[in-house]
Amino acid sequence: MSFQPVHFYQTGTFTVGNRLLEPSERSVQANIQRTNSLNSGHRACQGCGEALGARYAIDAAMNAARGRLIAANATGCLEVFSTPYPETSWQIPWIHSLFGNTAAVATGIAAAIKVKKHKGEMGDVRVVAQGGDGGTTDIGFGCLSGMFERNDDVLYICYDNGGYMNTGVQRSSATPPAARTATTMPVGPEPGNQFGQGKFVPAIAMAHEIPYVATATVADLRDLEYKVTKAMGIRGARYIHILVPCPLGWGAASEDTILLARLAKETGIFPVFEAENGEVTGTLKIRRKQPVEAYLQRQKRYAHLFGKKPAVETIARLQAAADKNIRKYGLLDQEAN
């Protein structure tokens, strides 16, 4: 069963909090005493979706782990903006080792905890690993797959902003087709990132048949928290892939971050679902379906599609991809059709 939004009480579970809901039904983020695991003073860009997603996810994990959590972090924006000497924004035990080894570092932490726990030197401490899409789907993929395959007791969270943002917005294997990056410029016969390349790691994670895989966005906080909480309640390898818009890399207004995440979901471009032991067990349905243009047009990385002569064909291909997601993951409610 996927997250069931409450469609009642003014805003139901769509807003962060809701004074009309029982405190137990409110989000972690609504709590006046939330951890703020990623504290103020970090150097993320204005409106950074990754900073937001990280606080959402780690606060939820902290809540689930009753404060007993250790995080390993890959190189990337999140690491750089959170821990430039002499200040760190993290309030939890946190380690950054390298760009491509985060899953393995987390495995090591989990192994140490297991031994220490057995020896009675440590209580039940949980481990999360986190990184950007580049650190996850590309350079860190080997370690990630190894961690999955061994079913190590680690929750890995990927903050997908569709590119190597920290190094100046280059293409990663999570960059969507047609998007402009510094290494997929909108020039030549196929402007922007090529179609038919790239990979969708949640599906690959599922192929490992690990106990839990989920996707989420910063636009659906309650769903995100539900998934992190659920993942924290499971032992073994777990993977959550969170779409986090990047105003800088996407060429979007800083206030549009959540809107864009929402549109990614509502268009079907980014399917939001969860899977247990390799099988999809729930999807977050599209609430108000939108054509892909609604999403694309707000981002300069797609500006070349909307020039004097709109790239109708390319847009149609992107729409087809979204429609395929909708079919594949059953993103539309029968009634909503």
Binding site: A72, A110, A112, C143
Partner: peptide, 15 residues
Amino acid sequence: FAAMSVAIGSSATGA
């Protein structure tokens, strides 16, 4: 690479 990385994680956790 994973071997040394796991080692980094566990050593940093005091093992």
